[in-house]
Every structure is written in structure tokens, then in C-alpha cells.
């Protein structure tokens, strides 16, 4: 029985209560609802966001970027399109804190992510990659934990939940904002769902419908 426990712990399927992150160790997401549900982003480790492109997956992270750029570089690896500095600067993110690697093969991207983490210069590495194999995920997670940094994978595919993930979220578009679904959470329950209302933050993107417009939209 004891060896079974050990095996499970080694594979990171089993967690001890003493290893739980204390309340103050999480990073505020900048959204009250998010912090209420999850307590914020984990301070280090490997996170996965599953999302279609162009639904607000980066805007969800902007407050986190803003917070982490004080502590180091933000590495962005293989964004699917050209990254624009202007809208990021408008949100208070200093482009000189960004390190952008694009057009890199998948193996090179993993290597680069590990280099960025190990250098101790990056507080966050954002990696657009379809899938991670166990070995790569483990390496990234260890590198991130050693340097107290975050590595975030953005994917359109269903993530493999047996990987050593600190948090896996699924993002779904909503007319008023974004719906988040917890797929996996270290030392916590999965399956929660909650909504972020962005009608105040981004009024142009999430317009408040008048009653007639709403009725029209419904009939359509």
C-alpha cells in the first residue's frame, strides 16, 4: 500500500495537503469573479488554456502580463498570427519586456521555452502549441517551478489531463464576455464553470443589447 502511495505521489497524481499553495501565493487575475472562484492564477508551474482563437484568450491574460512584466520578461513563442505591440502597449504592457519567438518548429519551441524558463529572466512563457507529450510537460513544469515562473500553453485541442498541470481551463465565447470551465486544478476540484462579464471593460466588443436588439437576436 505504501509503495502504491509513493508511486502515485511520484506521478504527481496524489497531493498532500501540506503542499497546497497558501492563499497569498497565488497571483491575482485582475477579475473579481476569477479570483473568487479559483483564488487567482497559480504562482508557478504549467497551465493550459484550451480555447478557439480570437475569443479573448489573450485579453484574459493581460492583467497577469501587466503584473508579471515587473518581475521579468514575457516570452511568447509561436503566436498563430503577427503580434501587435500597440494594443498591448495601450494596455500598459511595455513592448521591451516582450520576447517574441515566431516561426519556430515544435521541438525548437519546447527547447526555447525551457531555455527561457531556465534563464531566470522570464516570469511568464506563453507557448502556442497543439499538444504536449508527458516528458516535455514534465520538463517545462520542473523548469518553471525551479525559477518560480509560469509557463502557459495555449491550445485548441482538448488537453491531456494526466499531465502535471497546475491548472487547465477551457474558454468558451459568450456574447457578454467569456465562460471559463475548470478542466483540472491541482489540489482542487475540476468542473466548475463561471462567467466573466466584459461589457464594462470592452464595451465595443461586447455591446449591451437593447431590448429590441435582444429580441431580434433571439428570433434570428
Amino acid at each position: 500500500m505504501h509503495s502504491l502511495l509513493e508511486q502515485l505521489t511520484q506521478r504527481q497524481w496524489l497531493w498532500q495537503g501540506s503542499a497546497l499553495p497558501a492563499a497569498g501565493q497565488q497571483l491575482s487575475s485582475g477579475y473579481a469573479e476569477f479570483d473568487r472562484q479559483l483564488g487567482g492564477w497559480p504562482a508557478s508551474g504549467l497551465l493550459v488554456l484550451q480555447s478557439q482563437p480570437a475569443i479573448g484568450e489573450l485579453r484574459l491574460l493581460l492583467p497577469l502580463f501587466k503584473q508579471l512584466q515587473q518581475q521579468g520578461l514575457l516570452g511568447l513563442i509561436n503566436p498563430p498570427q503577427l503580434l501587435q505591440a500597440e494594443p498591448l502597449a495601450a494596455q500598459g504592457i511595455n513592448p521591451s519586456q516582450l520576447l517574441l519567438l515566431s516561426g519556430v518548429s515544435e521541438t525548437d519551441a519546447l527547447w526555447a521555452a525551457e531555455q527561457l524558463l531556465q534563464s531566470g529572466l522570464c516570469s511568464l512563457v506563453l507557448l502556442w502549441q497543439r499538444a504536449l507529450v508527458r516528458k516535455a510537460a514534465r520538463r517545462l513544469q520542473l523548469a518553471a517551478q525551479a525559477q518560480q515562473a509560469l509557463v502557459l500553453q495555449l491550445t485548441t485541442q482538448q488537453p491531456e489531463l494526466t499531465l502535471p498541470l497546475a491548472l487547465a481551463l477551457q474558454l468558451l465565447p459568450q456574447p457578454q464576455g467569456l465562460q471559463l470551465k475548470v478542466l483540472k486544478r491541482r489540489a482542487g476540484w475540476a468542473g466548475q464553470q463561471f462567467y466573466l462579464n466584459w461589457q464594462d471593460e470592452w464595451p465595443e466588443l461586447y455591446p449591451v443589447l437593447t431590448r429590441t436588439q435582444a429580441a431580434l437576436a433571439e428570433t434570428a
Binding site: 498570427q81 501587435q84 494594443p87
Partner: peptide, 15 residues
């Protein structure tokens, strides 16, 4: 870095 506020409503990723 100039104030780039006029770019607030620009897409972060551009084709």
C-alpha cells in the same frame, strides 16, 4: 514608448 491609447481597440494578433 508613446501613449498608444488610440490603439486600444486594435487586435492583438493581426494576419
Amino acid at each position: 514608448l508613446n501613449a498608444a491609447l488610440c490603439y486600444q481597440l486594435r487586435p492583438i494578433l493581426q494576419l
